[in-house]
């Protein structure tokens, strides 16, 4: 393989590590909100190196490079927004937090105001 190929393979390895970590985190984390964290950050970080590797392997000015650019921008903008929507819906419908969580300041503030 050429230098190109080795660089692309290295990027693929990084992306695969983070994608797999994110999937394991989604399976392993204790409550909804921490799972949302995994999906919003680690999956983005796992997808970007894959797209970079594709752009390197096929040439950044080819059709694959432009498609990778579009998918990357879409990921960066819409992924946190969708995670925000899901987290807000979960919080509004009263999904409880993990028993080991440290603090819920919204609850604290609400109690302060009601007193």
């Amino acid at each position: 393989m050429s230098v190109h190929g080795w660089v692309a393979a290295a990027f693929c390895a990084v992306g695969l590590f983070f994608s797999l970590t994110g999937a394991i985190g989604i399976v392993r984390m204790p409550d909804v909100y921490t799972r949302i964290q995994c999906s919003s950050k680690t999956i983005t970080m796992g997808a970007i190196p894959f797209l970079v590797a594709l752009a390197i392997a096929e040439g950044p000015l080819s059709t694959y490079g432009s498609r990778a650019l579009v998918v990357g921008i879409l990921l960066f903008i819409v992924n946190p927004a969708a995670s925000h929507a899901v987290a807000r819906a979960a919080y509004k419908t009263g999904v409880p937090m993990w028993s080991g969580s440290v603090v819920d300041e919204v609850q604290l503030r609400r109690e302060d105001e009601s007193e």
């Binding site: 989604i26 999956i43 797209l51 969708a82 979960a90 999904v95």
Partner: peptide, 21 residues
């Protein structure tokens, strides 16, 4: 909960998109 499933499904389609690319 439903939110867990939404998260898993969302992530599935992102990974599927990269696989298709």
């Amino acid at each position: 909960t439903v939110s867990d499933r939404i998260i898993a499904l969302n992530t599935m389609s992102t990974q599927g998109a990269i696989a298709v690319l």
